[in-house]
Simulated assay, not measured.
Amino acid sequence: MAIGVKALGFSFVAHFLGIAGAAMVLVWCIGFRGGLAWEASNKSLIFNIHPVLMLIGLIIIGGQAIMSYKSLPLNKPEKKLIHLVLHAIALILGIIGIYTAFKYHNESSIANLYSLHSWLGIGVIILYGIQALQNMAQRPSL
């Protein structure tokens, strides 16, 4: 049962919250944790990439993919293509984010997959990938 409320208005609130969340995580990682780096003698800078990419990829861009399907005033094939591309970008950023956590652990001689957080994260990225593959299989020809 629909309540008759347009999705576009809610998407503005979600956009604002996503931008605010990304800004806060970037301020935290850059301002309070020393920055971001792919290669560094301070290995914590490598790890700082992980929360940034996970938030921007899976939460913000993944959320955009979900909202785009309902809020864009386009035809169904175009909406599905945008939905698919945004989910693919989110999945790629999520995989890179998990890779940075493994890279940090390996370079810091810390065991991998020792916490519930890490196991749940691997599970989430696997399920997200399965869902993305399912979306690709259902994509109509344009």
Rank of each mutant, 00 (worst) to 15 (best):
43 K>D: 00
133 L>E: 05
98 I>H: 02
43 K>W: 04
91 L>S: 06
135 N>M: 14
86 L>W: 02
58 L>S: 04
16 F>D: 04
28 W>E: 12
116 L>D: 04
99 Y>S: 02
56 I>L: 07
9 G>A: 08
97 G>V: 02
35 G>A: 07
133 L>W: 06
68 S>T: 01
137 A>C: 10
42 N>P: 00
128 Y>C: 03
72 L>W: 04
67 M>H: 04
140 P>I: 14
58 L>I: 04
43 K>G: 00
85 V>D: 02
108 S>Y: 02
118 S>D: 10
49 I>F: 12
112 N>H: 08
26 L>P: 02
36 L>F: 06
75 N>V: 10
59 I>H: 00
15 H>Y: 11
108 S>A: 11
29 C>E: 13
78 E>L: 15
1 M>A: 14
7 A>Y: 10
107 E>L: 11
62 G>E: 06
79 K>C: 10
114 Y>A: 14
139 R>A: 14
46 I>R: 06
39 E>T: 14
16 F>H: 08
75 N>E: 10
114 Y>T: 15
126 I>S: 10
135 N>L: 12
24 M>I: 06
7 A>K: 05
28 W>H: 07
54 M>L: 00
135 N>Q: 12
64 Q>P: 00
135 N>W: 13
114 Y>L: 11
134 Q>N: 07
104 Y>K: 05
36 L>T: 00
48 N>V: 02
100 T>K: 12
10 F>K: 05
28 W>M: 09
107 E>A: 04
82 I>C: 01
92 I>V: 14
32 F>S: 04
124 V>D: 14
36 L>S: 05
117 H>Y: 09
93 L>W: 03
11 S>E: 12
97 G>T: 03
13 V>M: 15
115 S>G: 09
114 Y>S: 14
132 A>E: 06
49 I>S: 07
47 F>R: 08
78 E>Y: 14
134 Q>E: 07
47 F>W: 10
1 M>T: 08
63 G>Y: 06
40 A>M: 10
76 K>T: 05
34 G>P: 02
68 S>V: 01
41 S>A: 03
102 F>A: 07
124 V>E: 15
55 L>Q: 00
77 P>E: 13
135 N>S: 12
8 L>W: 09
76 K>C: 00
129 G>K: 08
6 K>T: 09
7 A>D: 08
42 N>V: 04
40 A>F: 05
41 S>T: 02
105 H>W: 01
90 A>E: 06
46 I>M: 11
80 K>H: 07
122 I>K: 09
128 Y>H: 05
116 L>V: 02
123 G>A: 13
120 L>F: 13
16 F>M: 13
136 M>W: 15
88 A>P: 00
113 L>M: 15
